[in-house]
Simulated assay, not measured.
Amino acid sequence: MQSDNEKMLQEIVQNTEMGKNTLDEMMGLTRDQRLKNEMMRQKNEYRRLNQQAHTALAALGAQAEGQSAAAKMGVSMGIRSRTMLDKSTRNLATMLAEGSGQGVLNCKRAEKDYPTASPGAQQLNRELCDMQTHAEQTWREFV
């Protein structure tokens, strides 16, 4: 059975993979260089946090369980359907703000669901939550 520590780290891995994969997919949809630059900056932050979670899981002797193929496909289909007719900066930024908001909610849930996670896992979760809170505000500036 997984400990709260391992469960929280798995949540962080999935949350950061969702962010990275979403930004990868959406980067090719815009010609707005300022938006692309911000996407790349945030993708690098997701990558950094993802690597830290992977390292912590490995230290526990656990294997990271990333996003399932079905989850990746669902995100991809959602992005395609919502951008088919509108690839404007405003629409993309709105979608990204919504995604960041969902990421914040996922962090808050993990905080409540895994109260006995290690201080390191809790700190990493807070860092991810803070990053996504800031990201949501940043995306709103593009709307």
Rank of each mutant, 00 (worst) to 15 (best):
M1D: 10
D4I: 00
K7I: 10
Q10R: 09
E11D: 15
E11M: 09
V13N: 00
Q14R: 13
N15L: 04
E17F: 04
M18T: 12
M18P: 07
M18N: 10
N21Y: 06
M27T: 14
G28E: 06
G28K: 03
L29H: 00
D32M: 03
Q33E: 14
Q33C: 07
R34N: 13
L35V: 10
N37K: 14
N37M: 14
N37H: 13
E38G: 11
E38C: 11
M39I: 10
M39N: 02
R41K: 12
K43L: 10
N44I: 08
E45K: 04
L49M: 15
Q51F: 11
Q51A: 13
Q52R: 10
Q52V: 08
A53F: 04
H54E: 13
T55A: 14
T55H: 12
A56H: 05
A58K: 09
G61V: 11
A64R: 02
A64W: 03
E65D: 08
G66F: 01
A69F: 09
K72I: 09
G74A: 01
S76T: 06
M77Q: 12
M77S: 10
I79V: 11
R80S: 12
R80C: 05
R80I: 08
S81C: 11
T83Q: 06
M84F: 14
L85A: 15
D86A: 06
K87S: 10
S88Y: 01
T89N: 07
T89C: 08
R90M: 14
R90F: 10
N91W: 02
A93H: 02
L96R: 01
A97S: 13
G99A: 15
G101Y: 02
V104C: 02
L105M: 14
R109I: 11
E111L: 03
E111K: 01
T116W: 05
T116D: 14
G120R: 01
G120W: 00
A121M: 01
Q122R: 07
Q122M: 11
Q122A: 10
L124V: 06
L124A: 04
R126I: 11
R126W: 09
R126T: 15
L128E: 05
C129M: 07
D130V: 04
D130I: 03
D130F: 01
M131F: 03
H134A: 13
Q137D: 15
Q137M: 14
Q137N: 12
T138D: 11
W139Y: 04
W139F: 04
R140Q: 12
V143W: 05
V143A: 09
